[in-house]
Design a protein around this nucleic acid. Structure first.
Length: 408
RNA sequence: GGGGGAAUUCCAGAGCGGCCAAAUGGGCCAGACUGUAAAUCUGGUGGCUUUGCCUUCGCAGGUUCGAAUCCUGCUUCCCCCA
């Protein structure tokens, strides 16, 4: 039974949004046309290494693209890189990965990953492969023959390796295998299109070479721009701590979204939402804060309900935008025996409650006017000011750290 | 196997005998301001019973009135040659 696809023009319009580069540039249209003419879905590959457990918005950029392919009737093929994960992707790295995961960790991570990935793509309509299925069966001679197709000079055309080489930094042999393995995945699953970030260019091209050598159709590469993280500069990444995870609660996502520098909103709209770009431009020309709230709500409602997103937004406006009391104030127990005549010097109170790391830390905070008490946030004047501690007293250490005292 | 270089406070990276709790940048924290916890500006960023004291500069010893700085050994890492 043949599948019917939307017109090529329409598919192109949807698929090229937020794509930085397609190589070779003209082949996507050809492939789409051929697929439509013959009623054959394109095999769209996306590989992910199960090295961590938090899928964040940066990962969703290509994942969303896959979903678009799926919705147009094409075949998603997900590669769980349980073997490539044992190497670690050297792409864009200045250093080799320090730790290598054990096989068991990789396995657990893979399960976790799929659960999260399923929030973006439709797993019931996707093929899922683990590249250990074929790499695990390879004999050493197969590996040698695979390696004999790639030269060191080719490897050094990669900017990340070249840079490390120039700077006399370590490049480990097994890292060199990474792009080769990734390319071989494409041969195994006979991919028509591979998705990834721009740093994947080398591997995508290598896959074309290997596919050609095997007498297969060559894949094209569609590269998404790298989504910048919350700092607005570096790529979103777990190790950089500048990410928004798709499993985070709505309010946590909201808080992080609102910390985004204004300048990156356009990119977020383009890569993470379906909002028409003209509409996004209009919003960005208006009030930046409103645009940011809209952006946050749009993305959050992809993972939660509209109502959840709205609630997160209004809670943010109330507690942070408006300076109201937080909805949840953590309670911290304090033993009455620590008090003297029901009081405690301010710096002592802050450290006892765990709001400050040390006495010096508390002194600094107080000197800078960050320590406040009660619902009306009365400032503490000096570090040794005696505070009459009552049960239920709210203590503030800056805007973000606070707690309610529970005398015990 | 041989040779060379490096290890500093959260990170990067100065310092090379006293003026070093240690420059500078990043991060982080606080304050001001604001459209938000954006941007910008200012201050802070080892501990303490805080105008002083104590513990820090890979580890262990040593030289010196005095060491992050000099010497010895050890550990780890990197590079080069073969």
């Amino acid at each position: 039974m043949k599948t019917s696809f939307p017109p090529v023009e329409e598919q192109l319009r949807i698929l090229t949004r937020g794509v930085e580069k397609i190589v070779p540039g003209d082949e996507l249209a050809k492939k789409l046309k051929h697929s439509r003419d013959t009623g054959t879905p394109l095999r769209v590959k996306y590989g992910i290494d199960p090295t961590g457990i938090d899928v964040h918005l940066g990962h969703t950029v290509p994942l969303r693209k896959i979903r678009q392919f799926q919705d147009l009737g094409h075949q998603a093929v997900i590669i769980i890189g349980n073997y490539t994960a044992l190497v670690g992707d050297p792409s864009g790295r200045d250093e080799a990965r320090s730790k290598r995961l054990t096989a068991e960790e990789v396995d657990n991570n893979a399960r976790d990953y799929l659960a999260q990935v399923g929030k973006v793509i439709d797993l019931s309509r996707a093929e899922v492969h683990r590249n250990g299925d074929w790499f695990g069966r390879m004999a050493f001679i197969d590996i040698l023959s695979l390696c004999s197709r790639v030269t060191v000079a080719q490897l050094l055309t990669r900017e990340d390796f070249a840079k490390r080489y120039r700077e006399e930094r370590a490049i480990f042999l097994h890292e060199c295998l990474y792009p080769v393995m990734q390319a071989w995945d494409s041969v195994e699953i006979r991919s028509d299109v591979e998705l990834g970030g721009t740093e994947q260019l080398y591997s995508f091209m290598l896959a074309r070479d290997l596919q050609a050598q095997q007498g297969l159709n060559q894949q094209i590469g569609m590269m998404s721009p790298i989504l910048v993280g919350l700092d607005g500069i570096r790529r979103m990444g777990k190790s950089l701590g500048n990410y928004i995870g798709i499993s985070e609660p709505p309010y946590e996502m909201m808080k992080k979204f609102m910390q985004l520098p204004d300048g990156v909103m356009k990119m977020y709209f383009e890569l993470l939402t379906e909002v028409p770009l003209e509409e996004a431009d209009q919003m960005l020309a208006g009030h930046p804060k409103e645009a940011k709230v809209k952006l946050a709500r749009t993305v959050i409602s992809q993972y939660y309900s509209e109502a959840d997103a709205e609630e997160a937004a209004s809670r943010w406006q109330r507690e942070i935008g408006g300076g109201g009391l937080p909805a949840e104030i953590p309670e911290v127990g304090l033993d009455r025996s620590k008090l003297q005549d029901g009081s405690l010097p301010a710096f002592k109170l802050l450290t006892e409650l765990g709001l400050c790391d040390s006495g010096g830390d508390a002194r600094r905070l107080i000197a800078q006017g960050g320590a406040k008490l009660g619902e009306d946030r009365a400032a503490v004047d000096s570090y040794d000011q005696l505070i009459a501690v009552s049960d239920g007293l709210i203590v503030w250490a800056g805007k973000k750290k606070y707690c309610r005292v529970r005398l015990g």
